[in-house]
């Protein structure tokens, strides 16, 4: 599945020690759209998106091969910190910084990187909290500890924190797996809004979720890309037998 996306993955392999977690994957994620990566647990979907902001290599004894082009530039060749400013990430479990307030969490990327006026930071915080659909709930208590929020609110706070840095791509690694259905619904509708501004790539083990939010879906199995295409096609007219078996729930 080639083509020219915002983020283009070419012949990507990633290793933990000697074990190859993903093998020779090539695919492109289109700009301002939501792409989902699905597959049974252990198929390498988390590893794949952790390569996209070069987080994979921060673990001991890991290695990445291939190319990942962001607007044509191979991000594996440049400073990882610059990459991560352009490619934000939201994790499986909400992980706000426990020692910080809501405000400090959202503004952390701006405060620790580059010089910004108080005014700029304030505006960025409000904008991000609004984009993350959290502003109405916290506007009276932005100085409260982040841990005083509920799980779903914490996850939206983490989204706001990632958005404050104005990334171009937003990676979401099973962002709802630790949340209840109500909070999940909120995040899903948020994801649909976010694609107007950002290129969103979401990993999920929940096929219904992929069907609800994603424009394109990639199916990974045992570290290999099995099928990739428009979500509708993949779910209704899968080309591969494996994909069909997976989406009809025969394994995984």
């Amino acid at each position: 599945m080639m083509g020219s996306g915002k983020l283009q993955v070419e012949h990507l392999s990633a290793y933990y020690g000697k074990r190859r977690a993903i093998e020779d994957i090539s695919l492109g994620f289109p700009e301002k759209a939501v792409s989902a990566i699905i597959g049974p647990s252990g198929c390498g979907k988390s590893t794949l998106i952790r390569c996209l902001n070069r987080l994979h290599e921060t673990l001991p004894r890991t290695r990445v091969e291939g190319r990942i082009l962001l607007d044509g530039t191979d991000i594996l060749e440049v400073d990882p910190i610059q990459v991560r400013r352009r490619v934000g990430m939201v994790f499986q479990r909400p992980n706000p910084f426990v020692t910080m307030s809501i405000y400090d969490n959202v503004s952390v990327a701006l405060r620790f990187n580059g010089r910004h006026s108080r005014d700029e930071i304030d505006r960025a915080v409000i904008r991000s909290l609004q984009q993350a659909a959290l502003w109405e709930e916290v506007k009276d208590r932005v100085d409260a500890p982040a841990m005083s929020l509920s799980g779903g609110q914490q996850q939206r706070l983490c989204i706001a924190r990632a958005l404050a840095a104005e990334p171009e791509v937003l990676l979401m690694d099973e962002p709802c797996s630790a949340l209840d259905p109500v909070a999940t619904a909120k995040i899903e509708s948020l994801v649909k809004d976010l694609k107007n501004t950002y290129t969103v790539i979401i990993v999920t083990h929940n096929m219904q979720q992929a069907g609800r939010v994603a424009d394109h879906t990639a199916f990974l199995y045992l570290g290999k890309l099995v099928e990739y295409g428009p979500t509708e096609d993949l779910f209704e007219r899968p080309k591969e037998k494996l994909t069909e078996q997976y989406i009809t729930g025969r394994f995984g």
Binding site: T73, Q82, G114, E120, A165, E166, E168
Partner: peptide
């Protein structure tokens, strides 16, 4: 590859 080709509109990381 020159890192400066990567530029982001608002927050520019300190070198």
């Amino acid at each position: 590859m020159d890192p400066s080709t990567l530029s982001s509109p608002l927050p520019r990381p300190r070198k």
